[in-house]
Nucleic acid binder design. Structure first.
Lengths: 244, 244
DNA sequence: CGGGGGCTTGAAACTGATCAAAACGCGTGG
DNA sequence: CCACGCGTTTTGATCAGTTTCAAGCCCCCG
C-alpha cells in the first residue's frame, strides 16, 4: 500500500483488471523522505526511475526571466516525472514544498509492466493527458484572468484534486504553500498575492491559516474563479467529500 | 502520403520499424478542408476520430473571463485532439486559423493499431508528452515574461516547429496569424501586441508582412525571449534549414 | 532570548488595458 | 474601374492593475 492513492486513481479512471492491479502492487520501489525545499530532480537530469508522490506536495518549477515560475503542483498519487519514461531529459526542476515522501519506481519495471499490459499503458498515458489538460488550464488562468480570479482558480483546483485523493475534508485541507509559492504559480508578486488573499478572505469565501485552507462558500469561490472541474477528468471519486 | 509529416516526425523521434511504418500508411482517413475561422471541434464534443493537420494552422482556444484565450497552435503533422482517444470529452474548441486541410482518422483504427504495436503506442504517447511540455512552456511564458519576451518567445517556438516540419526557409515562413491571434495567445491586448511587434521590428530582429514572418537576427531574438528549444524534444530534424 | 522567514501595510512607479479614432488594404459589387 | 465596406493595423491619450521598494510586525524555532 505504498502508492495506494495512485492505484485507486488509476482504478477509478480505467477500471483495471485484477491482474493489472496485482501487477501494480508488485512494482518494486524505494521510499524516500524529502525536506522542505529539497530537489527531487533538476533540469537536465536523466533519471532512471519515476516518482510517485506518497504524501506532501511537489512543485515543478524553473527560473524564467529572473522569476521562479511554478508550472504545476503534484499531490499524493501523482507521478510528476512520468514523462521521463519517453522524454529522457527533465526540462524542469522538481521540488518538495514542505516535507514529502515519495516512492521511486525503476523505469525498467514500468516499461516491462506496460509491455505486458496495454490496459496499464493506457491508464498511465491517460494520467499524462490529464496533467496536460491541467497545464492548459493554467495557460488560460495566467493568460486571461487577473489576480483575484487567478488565485481563486488555483484554490479551486487544489481543493478538487485534494478531495479526489481523499485529503480534503468538507472543503478544508492542509497544504504547506506559502504566499510566495502562490505568487510563483500565479505569475504575481508576493505583495499582490497577499492583498489578493486578503480580498478573498474579506469576501468571506475562504479561511487560510496555519497551513490549512478552508472554503467557506465553495460555490461563490468557483463562480469568482470561473472554475469548472471537467478538465480534471475525474470519474468516480474514490474518497473525500464533495465540495458542492 | 497524406499524413506524411506526421509519419516522418514519429520516425525521427522513435525510429519505427518497417512494419510500423506500413501500419501508419495503411491507416484509413478522410481529408477535409477548413475555411478561416471554421471550427473542427467544440468544447464538449465527443469525437470518434482524431485529426491530423495536413496543412495550415489550428488553434486550441476557449473563452475565459470574456477573453478568447488560445492555449496552443498546431501545425502540419500535429494531432491536436489525440487526447480524445483516452479523454473522450473535448475541453476546448479547435479552430482553423486561415484555411487548413486536415485528415480524420477513426479512433477505432488508431486503437487497433496501437494494440498491435507497443512501439507505435509509445510514439503517439510521446507526441502528447511533447505537447504537454509546450503547454508548460506557455505557462512559464505567460507567468514570467512581459510583453516583449512573450511575443518573441512565441515567434521562436513557431519558427522552430515550422522548421522541423520543413515549412520554414532560413528563418522565414508563411503563417496566417493576425495580431489579434497573437494577443489571444500571449494574454495581451491587440493594441499592446501591435506596439510590441513594432518594437521587435524596430530592434531589427524580424520582418513581418503579408502573412510572412522572417527572423533577421535569430540569435538575438532567442536571447530576448530566453528561448531554448530543448522543451520541444526534437531529435534528428527531418527537413528545413536550421535557424542558427 | 534572539533571529529569521513569512505575512502585512503604504507609497510611488510602470506595464499594459481600455477607449477612441484614423489609416490601410483588399475583395465585392455596382 | 471605382466606390464601398469590413477586418486589420496603427496611433494617441487616459486609466487600472500590478510591481517594486521599503519598512514593520508576528510568530515560530533554535
Amino acid at each position: 500500500m505504498p502508492h495506494q492513492k495512485l492505484i485507486s486513481r488509476l482504478q477509478a479512471a480505467s477500471g483495471l483488471s485484477d491482474q493489472d492491479q496485482t501487477r501494480l502492487t508488485r512494482l518494486p520501489y524505494k521510499v524516500k523522505s524529502l525536506a522542505d525545499g529539497e530537489y527531487v530532480l533538476r533540469q537536465g537530469d536523466k533519471p532512471s526511475s519515476c516518482i510517485v508522490v506518497m504524501s506532501g506536495l511537489l512543485s515543478r518549477q524553473r527560473v524564467v526571466n529572473a522569476r521562479n515560475q511554478i508550472s504545476s503542483f503534484y499531490l499524493a498519487g501523482d507521478m510528476p516525472d512520468l514523462p521521463t519514461l519517453h522524454l529522457p531529459i527533465a526540462d524542469c526542476d522538481l521540488c518538495s514544498v514542505g516535507s514529502s515522501t515519495i516512492a521511486a519506481v525503476p523505469h525498467s519495471a514500468l516499461r516491462e509492466m506496460m509491455n505486458e499490459s496495454a490496459g496499464l499503458a493506457h491508464a498511465f498515458w491517460r494520467e499524462t493527458l490529464i496533467h496536460a489538460a491541467i497545464y492548459r488550464e493554467w495557460v488560460e488562468n495566467l493568460g486571461s484572468r487577473q489576480a483575484l480570479g487567478r488565485v481563486a482558480h488555483l484554490l479551486c483546483e487544489l481543493t478538487v484534486r485534494m478531495e479526489f485523493v481523499g485529503l480534503a475534508d468538507s472543503g478544508s485541507f492542509r497544504i504547506p504553500l506559502t504566499q510566495q509559492d502562490v505568487a510563483d504559480a500565479c505569475g504575481l508578486s508576493v505583495v499582490h498575492v497577499n492583498r489578493t488573499i486578503q480580498e478573498i478572505r474579506g469576501l468571506g469565501l475562504i479561511e487560510w491559516e496555519n497551513h490549512t485552507v478552508t472554503l467557506l462558500r465553495p460555490e461563490e469561490l468557483k463562480a469568482l474563479a470561473e472554475f469548472s472541474p471537467e478538465y480534471l477528468h475525474e470519474l468516480n471519486p474514490s474518497g473525500g467529500s464533495k465540495v458542492s
